[in-house]
């Protein structure tokens, strides 16, 4: 059997730049659409913790007197540290540990997602606007 498949073009062509540009534009559009409306809200941070589709806890971070350690039981067990400045997952028994590596989140619109545990910790309300969401690379 001979296949009709021809070998690919091995050198970058001009149209490749277009593909890269489309991907870039898509990234910007999603970023603006997702993060845009969340800027400029009240500077009152609320941590919304949900497991699956269910919101299990809303914690008002601004009125928090002292740091609060919360144990979230999803598919995995997460230890979440909530403070005035934000939230972070300090311990998790999930295999990927992405939630722990995400580190501390402190700005509205940011979230920590633990996929194996199906846990989402999301910050609502805005504080210092204009700062970068995440610095990549």
């Amino acid at each position: 059997m001979t296949t009709k498949c021809s070998p690919p073009e091995l050198r970058p062509k001009k149209l490749d730049i277009l593909v890269a540009a489309v991907v870039l534009v898509l990234a910007v559009v999603v970023a603006v659409g997702f993060y845009g409306p969340k800027l400029g809200q009240s500077d009152h941070l609320t941590a919304v913790i949900s497991v699956g589709e269910e919101v299990i806890e809303r914690v008002d971070l601004a009125t928090l007197k002292e740091d609060k350690l919360l144990t979230v039981e999803g598919e995995c067990t997460l230890n979440v540290l909530l403070s005035n400045s934000g939230a972070e997952v300090i311990l998790s028994d999930c295999p990927t540990q992405d939630c722990v590596h995400t580190g501390h989140i402190s700005r509205a619109g940011q979230s920590i997602v633990c996929l194996p545990g199906q846990v989402v910790i999301h910050l609502e309300g805005a504080s210092d606007e204009g700062a970068p969401d995440i610095v990549v690379g």
Partner: peptide
């Protein structure tokens, strides 16, 4: 897939960064 399993659109916020990395 993440939106389906988690049942919310919060993860969409990751997409721009993932797209940048995919370049």
């Amino acid at each position: 897939a993440a939106m389906i399993t988690l049942g919310n659109t919060m993860v969409l916020g990751y997409l721009p960064f993932l797209l940048l990395v995919s370049l």
